[in-house]
Write a protein that binds this DNA or RNA. Structure first.
Lengths: 245, 245
DNA sequence: CGCGTACTTGATGTGCATCAAATGGTGTGG
DNA sequence: CCACACCATTTGATGCACATCAAGTACGCG
């Protein structure tokens, strides 16, 4: 099973000095295992922790009063969530495990202290945040202005990219770790319509499916269908001052 | 005309020490005036500045290749935008003025330097960011899972709240500074349907309209229709260490 | 083997888009 | 001051994308 620390994640954005890396690793908090379906945080829970996914796959979502659900984000190893604890006493969203997962809990006061002593880390965190914000704006535009087919294509590409960034081999297809209902809750559609769109993408030859495995058969056309933009590869922190000792 | 500096905005979240306030005010950069419709940043522009709206009203948005537009955020005096410059060399979104406006430009390197010397400011900025992220999740859930009527109601309440926070008197109604097309681009609807929904809200007695002015006639029911949550009033930074000298 | 959960497929309904045209307000040039 | 153009708003008619409802099928697991 893939495991990544938060230091690894920050390191992807910004080379860390030895003392910075040490500072991040020292704040490493308690681990907690979750089985599929387990809810780590409920909306409105009083929380003062931030979470980093160590292994597995999770999601954050909100529930509306009519019972419907909007998935906000899928969380993969290395991803930070619960940063809203830095501004709110109560969580604005739920977090739950999509499969067996392990998370690491950090107390916000400790995080704040480390950031105060290592300004570059604070900036790196801000940069990570901005990258996620950009991803979120893409999702917003997708929900507001693209077709069902485009949204499904976007979900498939997103999951594929993030599995790959986690080191999985996805070139010959991958097992989609989501039910069609979950895909629907992420893309603002019903499970039934997700099913039809998957079939449509299959009939168009953009993807192939064998049981639970998916192969992105015609990636170029799939990206066009999804109005895909690879933002992560464009992160650029080169303007930042280099690490000290 | 209402004017607010960025220090004012941060101060709403966190009481600043004299030296902190001074630090923020010293980095105050060049001002720039924009007339209605003027585009400050185009998507993919090379930028290294952050912007704070001083007066007026602006918006950030993305354009899709089919020509449609998704408005991501409305920007009011005191609001920060362009923070993506901290992570990207090229802007992921456009920014334009909705009426005569003034913005203040900050170079990211200067901002980074001030944040490094004043850790509490960095944390306050992170908190502001989190508050905006929470607002964005609400919009995401709105686009994915609520009806056209609810989205329009949400836009009206949002604009009202933010005008009020800027010190306008909105209790006896306010002039909606948006065309119906803009409301549609923010809520993922067509201008025609926005019109019908406004009429519907009017017929239901939730709002009243006279010319360009809108009155939120039955606020309680309007909030229920919008599935409204007032997140801003819940920001809580009391856990943070108090200001030094 | 039987049950629950996910997936699949068809029939029908509806919310919003699209197309089209009329109305009203506002600024501009004559 | 009026005529005109331009834009936002309004309203109606029609169409389609996606939701909803309803059955079935396949698969994993006690």
């Amino acid at each position: 099973m893939r495991v990544r620390s938060f230091a690894d994640r920050i390191g992807e954005f910004l080379p860390l000095s030895a003392s910075e890396r040490e500072a991040v690793e020292q704040v490493q908090g308690r681990s907690r295992s979750l089985r599929r379906g387990a809810v780590l945080v409920r909306e409105n829970d009083r929380t003062s922790d931030l979470y980093v996914v160590s292994s597995g796959m999770m999601m954050s979502y909100v529930l509306l009063d009519d019972g419907s659900r909007q998935i906000l984000r899928f969380l993969f190893p290395g991803d930070l969530t619960g940063a809203s604890a830095l501004a709110y006493a109560h969580s604005p969203e739920c977090v739950a495990a999509l499969c067996e997962s392990v998370v690491c809990l950090f107390d916000r006061a400790q995080v704040a202290e480390v950031l105060a002593r290592h300004p570059r880390l604070a900036l790196a965190l801000t940069a990570i945040d901005q990258a996620e914000r950009a991803a979120m704006t893409d999702r917003l535009a997708g929900l507001g202005r693209t077709s069902a087919q485009a949204r499904i294509a976007a979900v498939l590409l997103d999951i594929r990219d993030r599995l790959r960034r986690g080191g999985e081999d996805v070139e010959r297809g991958f097992t989609l770790p989501l039910t069609q209902e979950e895909i629907g809750d992420a893309s603002g559609l019903t499970a039934v319509h997700v099913n039809r769109m998957l079939r449509q993408l299959e009939e168009m030859g953009l993807i192939a499916r064998h049981g639970t495995r998916v192969i992105l058969a015609d990636e170029a056309r799939l990206k066009r269908a999804a109005k895909y933009v690879d933002r992560l590869s464009r992160v650029d922190l080169s303007w930042m001052v280099p690490a000290g000792a």
